[in-house]
Nucleic acid binder design. Structure first.
Lengths: 217, 217
DNA sequence: TTAACGCTGTGAATTTTTTCACAGAAGTTT
DNA sequence: AAACTTCTGTGAAAAAATTCACAGCGTTAA
C-alpha cells in the first residue's frame, strides 16, 4: 500500500464484473482475452476496460491481450480476496433468506458466517447453511467472527439501530436494503440498495421506450 | 412531451428516493420541506436536490421550501405513476419469491401481475398473491397483461432466452439479476443488478476502512 | 417601511468519468 | 527484413455529474 491513488466505486464495480465474466468464461480453452472481448462480455467499452486495468496496474500484451488467469488473480487480489471476508446478515425474512441462499457456497471468499433476527421462530436454527442467532447476541457473534461486512434486511424502523450495533461490533461496511439513510461514523462504508428505486427506474425507462415505440410505429 | 431534455438514470434514481423519503415523512404534520432537509433524508447535497427538481421543472418558494404534497405528486407524475405499470417476474426461486413478497401491495402503481417458472411445483399456484404460470405461457400472459417491465431471476444460463421472450412479448424494460450481459434491441432498457458485485464492492471498502482503522489506531 | 434573514434557482466552476485517438509494441505475412 | 496488422497504454479531449456561490425573492421583525 505504498501509493494507491484512490479507486472509485464505479471502477471497483466493473473490476468485480470483469472477474465474474472471466470466471464464467474460464471453463473455455481461451488463455488470453482482448479488451474488446472483455468489454463486450460486460457491456462496457474497450477503452474503459483498458483504463480500469491500468488503474490497478495490470498490463497485457499488444498481440495477445490479457492473460486470463493472471488477470483473475490480480483483480481478486486487488479486491481483497486474498483472505476470507466474513459477512453477517441481519433480518431473516424472505429477502434475507434469499440472500443467504444466494451467497452460501457461491462465493469462495465472502462467507456469510451468521444471521440474526428477532423472531423466535428463526433463531437457533441453521438456514441455508447459516447459523441464526437472536439479535441480542449480535455484538458477541460479530466480534467473535471478526465480521467486517453487514447486510441489513430488517424493516426500515429497525435499520438505524441495527447499523449502530453492527458498527459498534466492528463492522466497517454495510449493505443496506432498508429504504432509509443510515447515519454511521465516517470510517464505515454504506451501500444502499433500494429495490423499489431500482424497479421504479426500470419502469420509467420502460415507459419512455414504450412511448417511443408507439410513436415511431 | 413537448421538449424533454433527457433526464439521466442518476436523476431518476434520486427522484425516486425523494419520493420514498417524502412518503415516509408524510405521516408528519409538516407541509413544506427545504432542499437541505430533503437532502439530509436522502444522503445527498441540498444543491443536488434543487438541481434535480429544477430538471423536472418543479419550483419551491424561497421562504417555505417545497410543498410536500405537490412535490410528491409532481415526481410521481414524472415517473409515470399516473397509470398503473404492469410487471412480470420470471424465475420463482428464493430471490424471486422474496421480490414478490417485497412488491406485492407495497407499490400502488407497480403491480406484479404474473410470475413464471419452469418448475412444475411452482406453476398454477398463487405465490404471495401473484399467479404463477409455466414459462411456455409467457408470451400470451405478458401480452394479455400489457406488461412493460420484466424482472429476471432465472439462472444465468436461461437469462438470455428469457429476455428475448419477454421483449418479443412486448416488454420494454428489464431488471436482470442474472450475472450476464443481456443482448436486447435498442428500444429495451436493461438494468443489471448483480448482488455479488454489490457485496464485493462493500467488502472492498469495508476492507479499506478496516485497514485504515487499524493504522490510525 | 425598511432592514435582515434564509431560502431557491441557476450560471459558472470544478470534479469525475468516459471516450478519443494515436504512438509504440508484438506478431504475421510476404 | 520490410511492410502490415491489430493490439495496448495513455495523454488529451469531451462529456457528465456535482458543487459553488450569489442574485433575488418572500417572509418576518422592528
Amino acid at each position: 500500500m505504498t501509493e494507491s491513488t484512490k479507486i472509485s466505486k464505479k471502477v471497483i464495480e466493473r473490476l468485480s464484473e470483469y472477474r465474474t465474466a472471466l470466471d464464467e468464461q474460464s471453463a473455455g480453452e481461451q488463455r488470453n482475452i482482448f479488451s474488446h472481448e472483455l468489454a463486450r462480455l460486460c457491456g462496457v467499452t474497450a477503452a474503459q476496460v483498458r483504463r480500469d486495468l491500468m488503474s490497478i496496474g495490470f498490463s497485457g500484451s499488444s498481440a495477445k491481450g490479457y492473460d486470463i488467469n493472471e488477470l483473475k488473480q490480480t483483480v481478486s487480489d486487488f479486491l481483497g480476496f486474498g483472505e476470507e471476508r466474513r459477512v453477517v446478515l441481519v433480518g431473516i425474512g424472505h429477502l434475507g433468506r434469499a440472500l443467504l441462499d444466494f451467497f452460501v457456497n457461491r462465493h469462495p471468499k465472502l462467507v456469510v458466517c451468521a444471521g440474526f433476527d428477532v423472531n423466535e421462530m428463526r433463531i437457533n436454527r441453521v438456514i441455508h447453511g447459516v447459523r441464526c442467532y437472536a439479535v441480542s447476541e449480535m455484538e458477541r457473534v460479530v466480534a467473535e467472527n471478526r465480521a467486517q461486512v453487514g447486510i441489513i434486511t430488517v424493516p426500515e424502523s429497525a435499520a438505524q439501530e441495527t447499523a449502530e450495533r453492527l458498527v459498534e461490533a466492528g463492522v466497517t461496511g454495510v449493505l443496506n436494503f432498508a429504504p432509509v439513510q443510515l447515519r454511521v461514523p465516517g470510517h464505515v462504508f454504506v451501500e444502499n440498495l433500494n429495490i423499489s428505486t431500482v424497479l421504479e427506474k426500470v419502469a420509467y425507462f420502460a415507459g419512455l421506450n414504450a412511448d417511443r415505440e408507439r410513436v415511431t410505429k
